Computed example of a mutant assay.
Amino acid sequence: MRAGAGADDGREGGLPFFVYGTLRPGERNHDLCLRGRVAAEEPARLAGALLYDGPGYPYAIEAPGTVSSGVVGDLVTAKPGEYDGLLAGLDELEGYEAPGDPRNLYVRVARDVLRSDGTPARAWVYFAAPSVTRALRARGRLIEDGDWLAHIRRIRGG
């Protein structure tokens, strides 16, 4: 198991996951990684972050204090008994090795997200690693509305 896998907030099953890109319903990694392993999915939003269209998939970056609508996504809760496997699988998918590892493509951190009813929830969020963040800020394509699914529909023309 990867470093950091199994870490939780003291609740059985650990933290839920905030997904904002290819893990959202209808996208290519949703069924591949989440099918049969999820107890609940609900709309959520991550404030203090921006979303960029990276090569092939999106990257969220932390941007506290920015005036933006945040990042649109889903709060995903693992089924009982699926948490550790789901955490390890998502870490692998996201290229997350361990805290501070220079090979990280993303970093996994606990942040508050807002459910659609406005209530907060603590969740794991995969943000672009520092080296990726620097490149995105220099020459990346910002997704203004923070919504990957809407962005993909615009690109696909539907």
Rank of each mutant, 00 (worst) to 15 (best):
E144F: 00
T77Y: 01
A47N: 08
L136V: 05
V113E: 05
G157F: 03
D91C: 04
L15G: 13
A7M: 08
M1S: 15
D117R: 07
V38S: 07
A3F: 10
Y57L: 11
P58M: 01
D112E: 15
A44M: 10
P102Y: 13
A7R: 15
A129F: 12
R103I: 00
S68R: 15
L90G: 03
V76T: 06
G54L: 12
A135K: 08
R139H: 08
L136E: 04
R37E: 09
Y57H: 13
G89W: 08
N104H: 13
N29K: 05
T77D: 01
G73C: 11
G56V: 12
R103W: 02
D84L: 03
S131Y: 09
R108T: 05
C33V: 06
A47S: 14
D147F: 02
A78W: 06
V132L: 07
G6Y: 12
Y20V: 00
L86V: 06
R137D: 02
D31W: 12
G158Q: 11
D74S: 08
P55W: 15
R153Y: 05
G158D: 11
G70Q: 08
G140Y: 02
V71Q: 01
L105G: 13
G85T: 04
R28S: 11
R139Q: 05
L105I: 14
R134K: 11
G36F: 09
G95P: 07
V76C: 13
T77F: 09
R28P: 12
D117S: 03
T22W: 04
G65I: 05
A39G: 01
T77R: 13
T77Q: 09
Y126V: 06
G118P: 01
G54N: 12
R45Q: 07
G21S: 14
R24D: 00
G100Q: 05
L46V: 00
A44N: 04
N104M: 07
D31G: 15
A135M: 09
D84M: 00
A63M: 00
P25E: 13
Y83G: 02
A47R: 13
D84N: 00
F17T: 00
R154P: 02
D117G: 04
A3S: 09
D147T: 04
G70M: 05
V107R: 14
H151E: 07
G26Y: 15
L50W: 11
